[in-house]
């Protein structure tokens, strides 16, 4: 009976942006030392990525398409991120949702609606819903840095595809990580574009999968511009994120990630 409702677009985008960042940053990471074991390689890739990731910032514009057998809906948004904790997202379309925003800081999440002109802190009981009826569960996205911190990683395969090397990394959550999945399998190209992320339950059954459908060069680097989260267990349920523009490593004032900015945008 708990309905899907949570206003945490910020988190969703945060994840996507941060993972974009992290995968992009793989470029700056050292090439994996070829002589070590796959486990150490995977760790090295991610460790380097994390080290480089901290302090990073971004600005982006994007559209989310939620598809269901009987309807489809699009939401356009602008997002700012800084480091692995802070993010701010604001809806720019459709008209009725313009100005709706979500701010995520280290320990909390706030949402703002111009309709009521209020900022509301989201309680834990509401953290568990799928977002706006999309195929992203807040659980997957509320802790963007979790994929790095709360998992142990393993490089399981390297293959060639379209002239690129593709690393397949298996991520298994730590014992006390707030993650329900049994494992996640991430495929990353050597130019650090994420190709897919698959979510398996604890019996090893695939539950949902995010696929990269389009890759373009934005802000001077290849970026996944269209990604689709597919619900494996329900037919014709998917959500797409289409990235229009992105600027990496920009200067963002501290005031961006504040409740007052959430309420009264200064940008």
């Amino acid at each position: 009976m708990f309905k899907s409702l949570l206003q945490c677009s910020g988190l969703l985008l945060c994840l996507i942006l941060l993972s974009l960042n992290s995968h992009t940053l793989l470029a700056q990471a050292a090439e994996p030392p070829t002589e070590s074991t796959p486990e150490i390689q995977a760790k090295a890739i991610l460790k380097a990525a994390i080290d480089n990731w901290r302090g990073m910032s971004s600005y982006s514009e994007m559209t989310m398409r939620i598809h269901r057998p009987d309807w489809e809906r699009s939401v356009s948004m602008r997002g700012w991120t800084r480091g692995d904790k802070d993010s701010l997202v604001r809806v720019t379309a459709p008209k009725k949702d313009i100005g709706t925003g979500t701010l995520t800081l280290d320990k909390g999440m706030w949402t703002f609606s111009p309709k009521v002109n209020r900022v509301i802190k989201v309680p834990s009981s509401m953290m568990n819903q799928s977002w706006m009826g999309s195929d992203f569960s807040n659980k997957d996205i509320s802790k963007a840095d979790e994929i790095v911190h709360s998992y142990s990683h393993k490089l399981t395969a390297i293959h060639e595809q379209d002239g690129h090397k593709v690393y397949e990394i298996e991520a298994i959550p730590h014992e006390d990580a707030a993650v329900v999945w049994g494992k996640q399998v991430i495929r990353v190209r050597d130019d650090h574009v994420m190709l897919s992320e698959a979510f398996y339950d604890q019996d090893g059954i695939l539950v949902k999968r995010m696929d990269t459908l389009e890759i373009q060069e934005l802000d001077g680097r290849p970026v996944a511009t269209r990604q689709r989260m597919l619900d494996i267990e329900e037919e014709d349920h998917w959500t797409e994120i289409i990235l229009h523009t992105v600027d990496f490593n920009i200067e963002l004032a501290d005031s961006v990630f504040t409740l007052s900015n959430l309420r009264n945008p200064r940008d």
Binding site: L5, R73, G133
Partner: peptide
């Protein structure tokens, strides 16, 4: 009292 949820079309539902 502020009410916050999602509307039937997936948009934000909010009211005081």
């Amino acid at each position: 009292l502020t009410l916050f949820g999602s509307a039937k079309d997936g948009s934000t539902a909010a009211a005081i």
